[in-house]
């Protein structure tokens, strides 16, 4: 191999950024769509917005195969234990997007049976506002999350990741 070839074929980087680069562009979402936001999430998947452009089209309905939980819709007191179970079943590293007002704060449903924001009980990384958020908003949230993934540190995984 000529010295010139080495120059043009080898790239030095840190392992961390190489891994993060890979993760960032292949987030596998698990949509936890319960209500109206779930329908808008379908629009995010469908042809017009198409999140495949951001490498996140590999929708997995099994929490064990995914690393991004998208909570889309209101969570009732009956559903919350299920959500916690699903979050715990996802392997690390994992991220959470709270899509819509309900998932973030309870939204218009200030009643006895709606959880006032899933972040009370599970950690949330990105909040997407709106009722429902426009598909473009969800894409924006995804891009924000990718930025977050980029800055992850391996050393954090054993403790408080991504703080």
């Amino acid at each position: 191999m000529q010295p010139d070839d080495i120059k043009s074929n080898i790239l030095t980087t840190t392992l961390e950024s190489a891994v993060n680069w890979g993760r960032k562009h292949s987030l596998w979402p698990m949509p936890f769509g319960t209500a109206c936001c779930g329908i808008e999430f379908m629009a995010v998947l469908a042809a017009r917005t198409d999140i495949a452009r951001f490498g996140a089209e590999a929708i997995r309905f099994s929490p064990r195969q995914s690393d991004l939980l998208i909570v889309a819709g209101r969570i009732s007191i009956k559903m919350m234990p299920v959500l916690i179970r699903i979050y715990e079943q996802m392997p690390e590293p994992k991220w959470v997007i709270a899509m819509g007002a309900c998932a973030s704060t309870g939204g218009v449903f200030d009643t006895y049976s709606v959880i006032q924001g899933v972040d009370k009980f599970i950690p949330v990384d990105v909040y997407v506002p709106g009722c429902p958020p426009r598909p473009e908003g969800v894409v924006e949230g995804l891009i924000k999350l990718q930025k977050l993934v980029e800055t992850e540190k391996f050393s954090d995984y054993s403790t408080t990741r991504g703080k």
Binding site: A35, R74, S76, F109, T111, S113
Partner: peptide, 11 residues
């Protein structure tokens, strides 16, 4: 059922 019970009628 009831996993999306959000208290519409109370509201």
């Amino acid at each position: 059922i009831g996993y999306l019970h959000s208290g519409f009628e109370k509201l």
